[in-house]
Structures are given as C-alpha cells and as structure tokens.
Nucleic acid binder design. Structure first.
Lengths: 154, 154
DNA sequence: CATCATGTAACTATTGTAGTTACATGAAAA
DNA sequence: TTTTCATGTAACTACAATAGTTACATGATG
C-alpha cells in the first residue's frame, strides 16, 4: 500500500451519506467507493464511537450522520481514524546516544512538528459543509443529462 | 518499516564525515550508524551522482565531502534520495469519476501541497553547517571525560 | 423465525524500507 | 603480479501497515 487513504475514503463516504435520505448501508457506500463493505465499517468505527455517526442493525438499518455537516471538521474525522502518522519520513532512532544524531534529529523533529501543526490546523478549518458546498458547486457545472454518470444516484 | 528514515540516516553519515579527517569507509560509517555498509552505500549513491560527495575504491578509499557544509541544504540531500513521498496519507484515487470524491480530493490535495511546500522550504533553509554548529554546541556542553561515549571518536 | 445489516476476527495481497549475503570491479600495497 | 581493501549492485529476507476478502456472531425488523 503506497499511502494511507482512509481519510480520503471516509470523507467520501460521509458526503455520500449527506446526499442520501435516510440510513445508508455499508453495502451501498462500499459500492459507491468501489470497495468492500467491511472496509466501510472499519473506517467508520471511530466516528461512531465519537458520536459523529450512528449505525443500526437489521431491516432499514445502516449509517446516519449524527451531527450537522458544519459541526464536523476534517480534523475530527482524522482523529476518529486514530490520528494515524501524517509523515512518511521520520528519524531513525528516537533517543540516540550519538550527539551527531541528536543534532540531526532535533532539526528534523522541529520541521516535522511544524508541518504536522500546519496540516492539523488546516484540517481543523475545513468542515464537511465546506466539502459539501464544493461538491454542489461542481455538480451545478455538469449538464443535467450527465449527472448520473459522475455522482452516484444524485 | 514504520517510516522512511533515510534522510535522518544520511545526514548522520554526512556529519560524521565532516568530523573525520580524510575519507570515511562505508564500514566505519555503518558502525557509527549501527547498520550495514551496504545501507550506507545505498543512501549515498544519489549524493555522489549529484556531486555532493565523492567515493574512492581501494586502499585509503572511502567517502569524502565534495562541497562545503554551507553549500548543502537538507533539501539537496532530500532530493538526492530521490525525493521520496513526504506524507503518509493521500487520496484514494487520483482521478475519480465521482464528483463527491473529486471535491474531497481537491480539498485534501490543496492541504497536502501546502504542507509539502512548507517542509521543503524549511529543508531549503537548513544547511549541513547549521546541523554541524548545533552538534558542536551540544558537544561543548558535555564534560570532557564523557565525550567519547556520546560522539564516536570525537 | 427468516432476513437483513452491522461487528469483528482472521487471513491474504501489496508496497516500500531496512538489513543481509554474495559477488564483480577497480585501486593501492606488498 | 598478486593480495588486500573498498566501493557498486543485484538479489533475497524481514517487517510494518493498509486494503481487501471470507467467515461467522450479534441483534433488529418484518
């Protein structure tokens, strides 16, 4: 696996839920994502625990949003995934005895910390509402007769 | 392997070379890094191609810096490694047909691009001289009788 | 009670670094 | 000229983490 794409995936799922009246099943969401229902359940588990979505079993069951779109930031979603590591590069050793390596690590760690803060700050400033509005802007630009092809069942 | 630590490793090696009079062998550098000589040669190959270091075979051979410390930035070193991906997270699909996913990807790609630029800018502003000076500042703080233990043969 | 849908464990596939072994190439010393 | 030293590389194993899949348990609805 090249990169962790769970954030991208779960956001896709959440926006599909926002477009869909009533509960969405893992099955239908997985179909929109072209993946497996178990993958959907897996990436949604953290969001459920934190109260952003609800899930119901049995007939008429499925996933529903438990909050308004403007109440959920990308940072909330990221943290619900368990705050996976953001950077693909890192220090070789955490607490090296070698002073040379300590100097290297200190410089790199500072830089890493800074960009992680930048990214988390950006995530904190983007809500699902932002993405939802962007989607609708894109949707409005598509000719009516093409819409089904580019946005599953909308 | 959790994260790519080649940048951390190669910087460690370069600073050890700066402290060492004459050529350093892959063997001795690997010993300082507590790894294998082949790993050292592998991460140094790109730097050699770009003229930042030289290598010589045979007796008295090994690695030498080909430029002053202030002429090599962390960005140079990073690029000599082949500019490996900086972020551990990314979009699920590059060019999705689904408009929902396009909106998600656009927002994430913007954020990703921004933090990559921030990190590369920082790397561009740090030279090996910076790290070298930091190492010597740390070194000066250590009591003389402990120095061998924390900074291989200095 | 049959069906539907989630919850989860367990296993495979994939991808890329790290580490190792083995051997070829070439330079300096004996 | 032969030995020794050191780099250059290919090839293989170990490892880690996500993605995808199968299998089955749990619980709610009709």
């Amino acid at each position: 696996m090249k990169r962790d794409s769970r954030l991208s995936g779960v956001l896709h799922v959440l926006l599909h839920m926002a477009e869909h009246e009533g509960p969405s099943t893992s099955e239908s969401l997985a179909h929109a994502m072209q993946t497996n229902p178990v993958v959907v359940r897996r990436i949604m588990a953290g969001l459920r625990e934190r109260g952003f979505v609800r899930s119901e079993k049995g007939h008429g069951g499925g996933w529903t949003l438990a909050r308004d779109l403007e109440e959920i930031t990308l940072r909330d979603v990221y943290e619900a995934l368990g705050s996976p590591g953001l950077l693909a590069i890192g220090n070789r050793t955490e607490s090296p005895g070698c002073l040379v390596e300590q100097a290297v690590n200190a410089a790199l760690a500072d830089s890493f910390q800074e960009v992680e803060n930048v990214l988390l700050a950006r995530f904190g400033g983007i809500t699902l509402k932002t993405l939802h509005a962007d989607f609708h802007a894109r949707f409005a630009r598509i000719p009516r007769n093409n819409r089904k092809a580019v946005a599953h069942e909308h």
